[in-house]
Amino acid sequence: MKRKIILGRYMEGDSWIHRLDPRAKTAAMPLFMVAVFLVDGYAGVLALLLFTAVVIRATGIPYRYYFRAMKPLMFLLLFILAFHILYDAGGGKLLDVGAFKVYAGGLEKGIVSASRMALFIMLAAVMTFTTQPEQLAQGLGSLLRPLTYIGVPTDRLVLMLGIALRFIPTIFEEAERLWKAQQSRGLDLSSQPLKEKARLIIALLVPVTTGAFRRAIGLADSMEARGFRLGAPRSRYRVHVWKRADTLFIALFLLPVAAAALL
């Protein structure tokens, strides 16, 4: 179960991307999004894929982990591709078999749209693989801080995000344990009728959910017991220092945006 979900996990490492200020990484993401939405066509997508490949290379985490991150979303990617191929007409006709027609324009749109999605996933993976969740939340908090002046409760949001990120792997681990316990008591979903299968899967989620609630209550109590108050001034365990590498990293992400805008 857990084996399949790798996106969102932190992978220990010591690449320069790992050491970047989380604020730089968080800020790079929207820049990258802009670039992804500006490109339209094979050449642009190819260029962005190359760019992402270089960034991935720099993280020192093997490519296969990024492919594994994409695996659970494979169906979505294929659906996007198929949708455009089947419903988008435009450009020369490539194939004509009865009611099934493929146009060059549709194929290009399909590939471009699916690649956009894939690019997002890969870059999100770069972020989460190289940044500890609490760092990511803290970085996002710093970037959102100005919104406090217009009444957005950013510290509350960041706390929520930080806790959610922290507990995702724990909850997956619990789900895996539960799954194993049932398997060892003879659970075999493949032999069950669909209705029973659905009932079992939902029933199996109950202990995980109650566990998550219990954990949340316990956490809230223990935080309060240790003097935590929302909005109270707090010092930081790790103070972010903006270095030249961070500026360069942002600049690096401005490149594709500029290129896509100009071309």
């Binding site: 619990e174 539960l178 316990a181 566990g211």
Partner: peptide, 26 residues
């Protein structure tokens, strides 16, 4: 038979009896 470390992650049915029945019925 394997009894896991965390019993609260093993019991999932609506009643204890149903949970105990789960294995033998499987």
């Amino acid at each position: 038979g394997l009894v896991f470390q965390y019993p609260e992650l093993q019991l999932f049915e609506e009643t204890v009896e149903k949970d105990l029945l789960f294995g033998p019925l499987n």
